[in-house]
Amino acid sequence: MTKSLLVAASALALAFSSSVALAHDGHDDDDAMHDGMTVSVGALELSELRTLETPPNARNAGGFVTIVNTGDVDNRLVSATSPVSERVELHTMTMDGDVMRMRELEEGIALPAGETVELKPGGLHVMFIGLSAPFVTGETVPVTLTFESGDTQELIMPVMERTMEMMHGDDDNEGHDHSSDGSHN
């Protein structure tokens, strides 16, 4: 009986993974898991979705994605939402000497036709503000992105281990000015 149950469970797992792979063929999928996959939203291709683990006391965290606009019309990422934080903003990060400055991009992030825009540590990013819990490596974070074209896409960002290379985009607001007036708390 145990061997039969194991074989049945394995077959079910294989069938499920095959159906998940078929369901995520790069077309507009709702509430899709996107670990290592490309998701198409109109003429936009979204890939390399991720966020980074946070220290236990972190109030903020960054989310990252690569967006390729394969179309011939400019677009814009205009907003993001997530149930894991009080609010989500679209940010840019710059260095002013030794001080990291993050600023909300109220007009969103431009996605020019035919170009690739990388949201990555140390640059443009989605900013989760007022985390309800720390981000833990191996877990996932749901986020919904809204574009100027009217398209909306629910995504899942895997939480990745923070490495020294990624530390440049440190999100734990200690010693950093997170807006032009330093008002993020």
Score class of each variant (00 low, 15 high):
residue 7 V to T: 12
residue 7 V to C: 10
residue 9 A to T: 09
residue 10 S to M: 10
residue 12 L to H: 06
residue 12 L to K: 08
residue 13 A to Q: 04
residue 13 A to H: 06
residue 15 A to Q: 00
residue 15 A to N: 04
residue 15 A to Y: 02
residue 16 F to D: 06
residue 16 F to I: 10
residue 16 F to A: 13
residue 17 S to L: 08
residue 17 S to Y: 07
residue 18 S to K: 08
residue 19 S to R: 09
residue 19 S to T: 11
residue 20 V to N: 08
residue 21 A to V: 07
residue 22 L to C: 07
residue 22 L to V: 12
residue 22 L to W: 10
residue 23 A to Y: 01
residue 23 A to I: 02
residue 24 H to V: 06
residue 30 D to R: 12
residue 31 D to P: 03
residue 33 M to V: 14
residue 34 H to P: 01
residue 36 G to H: 02
residue 36 G to F: 01
residue 37 M to V: 14
residue 39 V to S: 15
residue 39 V to D: 14
residue 42 G to Y: 00
residue 44 L to I: 02
residue 44 L to N: 07
residue 44 L to R: 01
residue 46 L to Q: 04
residue 47 S to G: 10
residue 48 E to Y: 11
residue 51 T to P: 00
residue 52 L to I: 02
residue 53 E to S: 13
residue 54 T to Y: 09
residue 54 T to H: 06
residue 55 P to C: 10
residue 55 P to A: 11
residue 55 P to I: 10
residue 56 P to Q: 07
residue 57 N to I: 00
residue 57 N to M: 09
residue 59 R to G: 11
residue 59 R to Q: 12
residue 59 R to V: 13
residue 61 A to F: 03
residue 63 G to V: 05
residue 63 G to M: 03
residue 65 V to A: 06
residue 66 T to D: 07
residue 66 T to G: 10
residue 67 I to M: 07
residue 67 I to L: 02
residue 67 I to K: 00
residue 68 V to A: 11
residue 71 G to R: 02
residue 72 D to S: 15
residue 72 D to G: 13
residue 79 S to K: 14
residue 81 T to S: 15
residue 84 V to F: 04
residue 84 V to K: 04
residue 85 S to M: 05
residue 88 V to L: 02
residue 88 V to R: 02
residue 88 V to E: 05
residue 89 E to W: 09
residue 89 E to L: 12
residue 90 L to W: 02
residue 91 H to W: 11
residue 93 M to P: 01
residue 93 M to H: 07
residue 93 M to N: 08
residue 94 T to M: 11
residue 94 T to G: 09
residue 95 M to L: 13
residue 96 D to F: 05
residue 96 D to A: 13
residue 96 D to P: 01
residue 98 D to L: 11
residue 98 D to A: 13
residue 101 R to C: 12
residue 102 M to R: 11
residue 103 R to D: 13
residue 107 E to F: 13
residue 108 G to N: 05
residue 108 G to A: 05
residue 109 I to P: 03
residue 110 A to D: 15
residue 111 L to M: 03
residue 114 G to H: 05
residue 117 V to G: 02
residue 117 V to L: 01
